[in-house]
């Protein structure tokens, strides 16, 4: 499982380098998703399966979808369809796909019962996280809910115009 950690870390760093060097927003987002998935696998090797699941669902899922929506919205127009077809060429998908397949292979290897029975770090289960969260950290949860409400109102106000269009 040591090798799993080092390989995931290498994939995370490599794909992050590719994120900040891409000229095209969509290509950078593909590598950013791979980077987040690699970090999720690092969480898994560190014995934090709940955080790994949340990293995939919230970060690589919800937040990246927001990014994709906005990047696509920036390019509305006649030339956009042609350009979008060019972005989605098969060779664009090769790099992120290879890295994602590597991560999937590592996950399959880790889900093997032989390696799972000997974890490197003590696994902190989701149950312990939930008990801590709604025990000593209850005030933080309330504050996070207020933050999300403020972000909701702020995003609505900022993106809304009098004519109802952007």
């Amino acid at each position: 499982m040591n090798a799993t950690f080092y390989l995931s870390a290498a994939i995370a760093v490599l794909s992050t380098v590719l994120v900040i060097t891409r000229a095209n927003g969509v290509h950078a987002l593909l590598y950013l998703v791979v980077s987040l998935l690699a970090v999720a696998l690092v969480f898994f090797t560190l014995g934090a399966p709940f955080a790994a699941a949340l990293e995939v669902i919230v970060y690589a899922g919800a937040i990246m979808v927001l990014f994709v929506f906005v990047v696509m919205m920036m390019n509305l127009g006649d030339a956009a369809a042609v350009r979008e077809a060019r972005w989605m060429e098969p060779k664009i998908w090769v790099g992120p796909s290879i890295l994602a397949i590597l991560l999937t292979a590592q996950l399959a290897y880790m889900l093997d019962s032989n390696t799972m029975s000997q974890p490197h770090h003590a696994i902190v289960p989701a149950r312990a996280v939930g008990i801590a969260m709604y025990g000593p950290y209850l005030l933080c949860v309330e504050l996070a809910s207020m933050l999300l409400l403020a972000a909701l109102v702020g995003a609505y106000r900022l993106a809304h115009t009098e004519h109802g269009r952007l």
């Binding site: 970060y59 919800a62 902190v124 996280v129 801590a132 969260m133 933080c140 996070a144 999300l148």
Partner: peptide, 21 residues
């Protein structure tokens, strides 16, 4: 081996979602 790290990660996640929106 404490759950506090994951709790703080959850709060960072909330912050990231608010900041991105």
């Amino acid at each position: 081996g404490q759950p506090d790290g994951q709790v703080m990660f959850l709060l960072v996640l909330t912050l990231a979602a608010a900041e991105v929106s």
